[in-house]
């Protein structure tokens, strides 16, 4: 099966989003999304690891014997996760203190081994790299949307602790509601489940509305396009 670049992009960001559609990596998705910045930090780390592991798996896909491909993939992913963990600990120490155990736990995020096995091990390196980037961005999108939602409802702020990522001088934190008493449920684990459920429902509603939209364009236009596609 070959994929076009636009298709890979749409898959990762929307139609096959790891957070909203595949529902993979739920443990970090639900656990660290107390705030927008936490979600963004873990999203970026996951994206880096997805790209590195996808590219590596694709490069060695014809060398590694089928029988041991999974242990080899696991070794690759574990090494990259450890390296990224040390890098974050060295250069974003405060963020490391916040994300803590969830960085090493990226290793157990099944969307990473999932993409290695389902996509990267069968595709050329450029497409595997793009797939890693898009799946990572899709996951980041899910993490930040859920984090932003919970932070807004729970604390009444957005982008709190942005200085953990962008340095002391960044003044990105927005207090949306002054004197907000806080909505505890949004911050607690049940809030994560409810928030994720709402976001998945929202995505499905958008998809339904799009597919229900009547096709206004003349029919011959579509047939032309299909014949073009079969030729290429």
């Amino acid at each position: 099966m070959t994929f076009r670049y636009t298709e890979i992009m749409r898959e990762g960001l929307w139609t096959n989003n790891p957070g909203f559609v595949q529902l993979l990596g739920l443990c970090p998705l639900l656990a660290v999304t107390g705030t927008f910045i936490n979600g963004l930090g873990l999203g970026i780390a996951t994206t880096l690891i997805l790209m590195a592991s996808n590219a590596t798996v694709s490069l060695i896909r014809n060398v590694v014997p089928q029988e041991v491909r999974l242990p080899v993939f696991v070794l690759i992913i574990a090494s990259f996760v450890t390296a990224v963990e040390m890098a974050i600990k060295a250069f974003y120490f405060d963020l490391y203190l916040v994300l803590g155990i969830f960085i090493p736990l990226i290793v157990t995020n099944c969307s990473i081994i999932g993409r290695a096995e389902a996509f990267a091990s069968k595709q050329p390196v450029d497409k595997a790299l793009l797939d890693g980037l898009m799946m990572g961005l899709g996951f980041t999108l899910a993490l930040t949307l859920l984090g932003g939602l919970r932070e807004l409802l729970g604390h009444g702020t957005l982008f709190a602790q942005a200085e953990l990522m962008f340095g002391e001088d960044s003044h990105l934190t927005i207090t949306v509601f002054e004197n907000y008493r806080g909505f505890l449920l949004a911050i607690l684990p049940p809030g994560a489940f409810i928030g994720l459920g709402l976001l998945v429902a929202l995505k499905n509603a958008i998809d339904q509305r799009v597919s229900a939209r009547p096709v206004e364009k003349p029919i011959q236009f579509t047939t032309e396009k299909t014949s073009e596609m079969t030729q290429s």
């Binding site: 590694v64 014997p65 041991v68 070794l75 090494s79 450890t82 390296a83 040390m86 060295a90």
Partner: peptide
Amino acid sequence: TMSALTIAAVIGAALVAITYQVTRAQIAHN
């Protein structure tokens, strides 16, 4: 299969070891 596994393990360990060496001082400092 055994050589594939061995090579992967060696490369993975090397990556971790190099990153450790590069970041060690900074992490201790932090």
